[in-house]
Simulated assay, not measured.
Amino acid sequence: MLRKYVSLFLFYSLVVMTVSGTVLYIMPHGRIAYWTGWKFLGLDKDQWGSLHTIFGFLMVFFGFWHVFFNWKSIANYLKGKAGIFTSKEFLLTAVATTAVALGTMFNVPPFKTVMDFGEKIKNSWSKPETLPPASHTELMPLSKIAQKIGISPEKAIEVLNSKGIKIDSPSETLKEIANKNKTTPAKVYEILLRISKKNSFQFQPGTGMGRLTLREICLQLSIPPQKCLQILKKNGISASLDERLRDLAFRNGKYPYQIIELLQGGK
């Protein structure tokens, strides 16, 4: 009887892991998912991640039970003429598994192709007009956001209230404000940014800017793409508009923030 429960729990865990794994494979990168309040089937990025983790543990747990109940059959699969762990099936599957692990770690085709395809899907999701100026900006309180863009918390609350955004306290985070008003952190930030005199676009580690293409970076900086190419060329940097900032920077012996500084006229 217990064997049936184990098999069914293992099956259900596999179904959930398949669905959650697929969603995690195609969902936008964290910076975009959190910033835009991304959801799929009513669940956000954290909820899908939690589902995948918990059912992953369940799958491992019931997987061990499955091995326990079927150990005789598994032992026969492993046993060759010279003893256990010498069967042709064991050796072939062990070699294949090792090859997949090494290929994935060293990022070689076809494993690289699979990951690149997922990256392409992640980058294809629509992006907000303004990207977050720092890592996890959505978790910052309104008071800190106001300080960053050069206005007082009182002014920030006044502006948001005028747009129908309800706020109880300047200590509320952008995410809390957005959830309460059925909007996104990006839209709340963009409202505040319209009255700010500061430039919101600053490259900071952890914001994911390195994954953007040069074309996207140029648009964020309000610089014509061809002008970006000219600026980089004058500084001895060969570039392609469809190349990711991180790849472009490292290929030319620089860090992503240094490319941003060059485009903004820094040294």
Rank of each mutant, 00 (worst) to 15 (best):
F40M: 12
A33F: 01
K144A: 10
I145E: 04
Y12S: 09
L14P: 00
L102T: 06
F69N: 05
V95Y: 03
I32P: 01
I54A: 05
L131I: 10
F85Q: 05
S124G: 09
Y12F: 14
F69S: 07
H136N: 05
S87Q: 12
G49C: 03
V114M: 15
K39C: 00
L41T: 06
G118N: 04
E89T: 13
G118H: 04
L139H: 06
V60W: 05
V114Q: 08
A75N: 08
G80H: 11
P141L: 09
Y77H: 10
F40C: 07
T97W: 15
M17K: 07
K127W: 02
N107V: 09
T98P: 00
M115I: 11
T113H: 11
M17R: 08
T98K: 01
V16G: 14
S126N: 01
K45Q: 08
V16M: 15
I32G: 02
L78S: 06
W35G: 06
V23W: 09
I74L: 14
I26K: 14
G80T: 10
S73P: 03
G42T: 13
H52W: 01
F64W: 04
S124Q: 08
P132M: 02
S143F: 03
M115G: 06
G150H: 01
I54F: 01
F85C: 06
G103F: 04
K39G: 01
T93Q: 02
M115D: 10
T18R: 07
I54V: 12
M105L: 15
T104W: 14
A99L: 15
D44L: 02
M115L: 12
F117Q: 12
A134F: 09
I74F: 14
D116G: 07
E138V: 00
V67R: 12
K112V: 01
E129G: 15
W35K: 03
M17Y: 05
F85E: 00
L41S: 06
K144F: 07
F69T: 06
K81C: 10
T97K: 10
W65L: 11
V19K: 07
E138S: 03
T18N: 05
V19I: 14
A96I: 13
V15K: 07
S152K: 09
G56H: 05
V60L: 13
V67M: 15
A99I: 04
W38R: 00
T53C: 05
K88Q: 12
W48T: 02
H136F: 00
G83S: 09
A94Q: 12
A134V: 15
L92W: 13
